[in-house]
């Protein structure tokens, strides 16, 4: 077996994984697995009937369908030549995501100004050029702007400075 269309191969795999995941959580673990583990692993939801659909009905049908479509895409990728998966650029990906998380988790303890400056610096590392001076100016301007617009004008309940400083 040879993967002829890597793009579709991975896409199919992703769909199968998502589909089965939703089905598995909705169905719950089968009894014998629970018995081995000694406890109910995944409780699952009630399936119900066509007349009175339980909370598991729609997700199981959809999840099954998704896994099925994923399988079709996957089989297709084995039969037919397809494009390669383009290279992942981890640098922007990691820095952009890190900057979002840093901002969110720093906002409450350190305030909007510091969290904003951190976001701009971390985010800027994900780009092609990084000039300290430029980024510093940008960070300061953006921090002032967002305090004025979001805290003062739009009255979002954000702390501006760290708790211990105010």
């Amino acid at each position: 077996m040879k993967i002829k269309g890597p793009k579709d191969f991975w896409a199919g795999l992703m769909f199968i994984a998502f589909g089965l995941f939703f089905v598995a959580v909705a169905v719950g673990t089968p009894e014998f697995l629970d018995r081995i583990a000694g406890q109910k692993l995944i409780p699952g939801y009630q399936f119900g009937s066509a007349v009175r659909m339980g909370p598991a009905y729609f997700p199981i049908v959809l999840g099954g369908l998704l896994a099925f479509l994923g399988a079709l895409v996957l089989i297709d990728s084995l039969a037919e030549e397809g494009p390669k998966v383009p290279r992942f650029h981890f640098r922007p990906l990691i820095f952009i995501i890190a900057s979002c998380l840093a901002f969110a988790y720093l906002l409450k303890p350190l305030g909007l100004v510091i969290a904003g400056v951190v976001l701009v610096f971390v985010g800027a590392f994900g780009g092609h050029e990084f000039k300290w001076k430029e980024v510093a100016i940008l960070a300061v301007v953006l921090a002032i702007f967002s305090v004025l617009v979001f805290v003062y004008a739009l009255t979002l309940p954000f702390p501006i400075w760290p708790e211990f400083a105010s």
């Binding site: 952009i96 900057s99 979002c100 901002f103 969110a104 906002l107 909007l112 904003g116 976001l119 701009v120 985010g123 800027a124 980024v135 940008l138 960070a139 953006l142 967002s146 979001f150 979002l156 954000f158």
Partner: peptide, 12 residues
């Protein structure tokens, strides 16, 4: 970075 900051403020 500006867009990113506004998005984070929005989502938060």
């Amino acid at each position: 970075p500006s867009i990113l900051l506004f998005m984070c403020i929005g989502v938060y």
